[in-house]
Design a protein around this nucleic acid. Structure first.
Lengths: 154, 154
DNA sequence: CTTTTCGTAACTTATCAAGTTTCAAATTCT
DNA sequence: AGAATTTGAAACTTGATAAGTTACGAAAAG
């Protein structure tokens, strides 16, 4: 099944935003993600509603962080992109008459809910500044002098 | 995102199989699931390879359990239907050059892997006989005298 | 008033489980 | 032997939706 990459992509974008001292245009960001500006705007719109980014129109406009990375968790971003469905696995029927299927659903729901709770709790515990620090460590390990743009168009 | 209901459906089918004292045809099972026989055969084929069911062709043929429900775990069935992708959430790029994206991937992978491990461990801990017992309890709670077919065509 | 850039709606594409059609092969019944 | 039943399997279509695309209006700056 195909993946929902919105959380992953937005995390990537937010981290790059901090490196920049200027607004990034949808065009730039789209180039970075290998997609197109309209899709970037559509997805970033959710983050703007949460105050995680701000946008400006016109000359010199674009997207900037709305608050420090230390005040944004993965859970915040997950919610801001619309809290998409976590699992590809699912129930055949949500409200079955069949008692057998009800028993199956009960067991699967309990288990999926437990795994979802763990996942979202972990997301809530990770701040974007933690990812930035991990990035810095990776860069240092490779002997990179100045952080700079590391993702022109991979 | 659309769900993969194969695990859920096969659990439902296996529990019904135990109630029956005779082979169930793909046609019957398809009626129960609200789908068609060819799809049932395609999905049950995986369970046959694992020995969880056996099939017989011709008059009086069909599908029967290949071993007791107490010897089949949810994990067994999950694997038998092809160990489908657990998550709808995914990474934008599996092997990015960008160090920032590598840091994002690392954090997401760790978290998703942890949640997946928990989920599959829970699946491994639940036997189909546990679901059958839960079903029996539900039936008793509703005052059902004889188990019988509870899922003709819901 | 021209350029840049976002805002947004409408539409198309890609993917894959699910669903469908079809026929051959195997088994049982008469 | 022949008819009926049932699985086995290949080939194809459908449906749902994230992703991608196109297009144009609105706002801001030069």
């Amino acid at each position: 099944m195909r993946h929902d990459g919105r959380l992953s992509r937005m995390l990537h974008v937010l981290l790059h935003m901090e490196e920049q001292q200027r607004p990034m245009t949808s065009e730039e960001i789209a180039g970075m993600l290998g997609t197109n500006p309209a899709l970037v705007r559509r997805t970033l719109a959710g983050l703007r509603e949460g105050g995680y980014v701000v946008s400006e129109r016109g000359h010199g406009g674009g997207w900037m962080l709305g608050r420090p990375l230390s005040e944004i968790t993965l859970r915040d971003v997950y919610d801001a992109v619309g809290a998409p469905e976590v699992f590809a696995l699912g129930l055949a029927d949500d409200q079955p008459q069949c008692l057998v299927e009800q028993a199956v659903n009960h067991a699967l729901r309990r288990t999926l809910d437990e795994a979802r709770r763990l996942l979202l709790q972990r997301f809530a515990d990770i701040r974007l500044s933690d990812l930035r620090d991990d990035f810095a460590a990776r860069a240092a390990a490779l002997g990179v002098r100045q952080p700079g743009p590391t993702c022109a168009d991979d």
